[in-house]
Design a protein around this nucleic acid. Structure first.
Lengths: 335, 335
DNA sequence: CTGTTAGCGCCTTCAT
DNA sequence: ATGAAGGCGCTAACAG
């Protein structure tokens, strides 16, 4: 059996409540007794039982992070930002991979929070079809923070970045380099970010008096493979684009592969811009010109907001953060 | 307050123990009452409290996965293999990022298991300096499974792959392509895998009558950046290698970047072989020739072994798995 | 400053 | 087939 608080109490010659006071630094305790208790704790290598503690405290001090897939490189910086913040605040972090399973989402959220597995939840990048579930959860008062998904409803805490401006920066960069036939690879259009970036692309072209050609818009789903395929499609056009803006870096990397396989080179034959600035963007050759989202900061802010809410209860004002993005010029455009 | 088993009992007009029997499918219960209970469960959206349940059952049905950094792409396939297996067996999975913090490792393990956060632990790729901690934990009888780290002690369950043969396959492939000056980029030599791959490189060259030249061995640490820097160093040699074998794919990708920046091309000027076959290996351009470790399977096996141990107690025989690797020929060697 | 007491929500004998 | 009672390990009033 594992060592319990009774064992520590016995060894230290005090009551269980005193041990509890000492290890939780609550209430006044004679320094002498405290020392004896710590001594016993060390000697027995006592570790308070997490379940027992959570049960009586009615909180777990852990936050859940729900996203499609932890192992997707896109989430790296968001995760690091969240992790740093939760760690600093003394919270544990546990991951929930949804694998896009819309049907299971509602149950997952409920079982996580209502089942007392976590005190609150951070949800990243949810599908537009999740709308009603999300609204219901918020209406119930469940402590939830959203990243990359916003609602006009002011009661919903969320942090998003400026996707439209991001797309504009990308397109204008290519325009300034002299490109006029600029292809676009969409993300999965069931996601808010994908839609906003597409809108940004279209609006920017229009503003510069360039007609939008449907054949220059290829549909992807944010995955590497779809970027590769979309690029092949664009390359097969009678008049292929001289530049391509992909809705995320993974697809941009896929596009670069397709360009290379076609015997063409980046940026000489085709310029490529990505989106996100994931770690890999600067690791591939040529290094990717891209739009940087402040992913680490977004994670940190979402975590911070949730933690505040957890500490102060519902009286905390729900926050809405709208973060700026920036163009990062590297090698894939020949700039 | 969250709904508890009392609420369900009251609504269904039965006692709490009956509710417990129904939801856990234990003991005989009248189908009629069972139906009433399920009805109440649904109506109230009852979710059993995880802590209370864990406290009385003395188990959490969750397995911990301890690794340096979940967001490192190397772990993707291992994680997926573990996750699929634990899910299928009804276990939850929680991650522990160690960030190479040797000092904290012992405490993390103890607090996870002794604190009753997890029933058992899978530890991936631990530093050689962890030896005593690991041995101590095993000696205590803690349920732990190791991946990418083995001990001669038969009581320690571990799954590793054949690193020496992997290195041999890589070197022989380059040899067969006519290369004679083959550079090598080591991994972090505090890890078993790095040492074994270095040994494989040296032995293979010797067997083929090629002298080992120290200047052709550059030191890396498994990170992308170190591969880049090691390659620059090799390229600066009076007589640079015509081929390079990197101890993992991330460093190989870094090496390709350095080669490209030097105005040379892969595979025409320098051939490159990686190791691991992470997902990215086939996403970069040119696609990476590499040694495939059965990472998914390694994860699955480690999880399986741990779960068996958890179910059967200590009487389960500790397992040792030694898996084969294979050469995957793609584009980075010009084969 | 310290001990006693009473649960937290659930499962599990033991009766009935 | 069902209910009553006890306790998992811990914390938090309440006394003293």
């Amino acid at each position: 059996m594992a060592v319990t608080i009774r064992d520590v109490a016995k060894l230290a010659g005090v009551s269980r409540s005193t041990v509890s006071r000492v290890i939780n630094a609550k209430g006044e305790v004679d320094p002498q007794t405290a020392a004896k208790v710590w001594q016993a704790v060390k000697e027995l290598e006592y570790h308070p039982n997490t379940s027992a503690r959570a049960l009586v405290r009615q909180r777990t001090d852990t936050i859940g992070l729900m996203l499609p897939d932890v192992t997707n490189p896109f989430y790296e910086k968001i995760i690091k930002g969240i992790e740093a913040t939760t760690n600093a605040a003394g919270f544990n972090l546990t991951f929930y991979n949804t694998y896009e399973d819309l049907a299971g989402r509602r149950r997952m959220i409920l079982s996580a929070i209502e089942g007392g597995k976590v005190d609150g939840l951070i949800i990243v990048g949810s599908h537009l079809g999740d709308k009603s579930t999300l609204l219901e959860m918020i209406a119930r008062g469940l402590p939830i923070s959203l990243i990359e998904r916003s609602f006009s409803d002011p009661s919903i805490p969320c942090v998003v970045s400026d996707n439209k401006t991001g797309a504009r920066l990308a397109v204008e960069h290519l325009l300034s380099l002299g490109h006029r036939r600029i292809g676009f690879i969409t993300g999965n259009l069931h996601y808010q970010t994908a839609i906003e970036r597409l809108e940004g692309y279209k609006e920017t072209l229009s503003q510069h008096g360039i007609p939008i050609e449907d054949e220059l818009i290829a549909f992807g789903d944010f995955e590497h493979k779809s970027g590769y395929e979309a690029m092949r499609q664009l390359l097969a056009l009678p008049m292929p684009p001289t530049a391509v803006f992909a809705s995320n870096d993974m697809m941009a990397i896929g596009a670069i592969q397709a360009i290379g396989e076609a015997g063409l080179s980046v940026p000489n034959d085709v310029a490529v811009v990505g989106y996100d600035d994931i770690t890999f963007a600067s690791m591939v050759h040529p290094q990717l010109t891209t739009i940087r989202q402040p992913l680490y900061e977004m994670g940190a802010l979402a975590a911070q907001g949730l933690i505040e809410r957890l500490k102060n209860g519902l009286e905390t004002e729900p926050f809405k953060k709208f973060l700026p993005v920036e163009l990062v010029v590297r090698k894939s455009c020949g700039a």
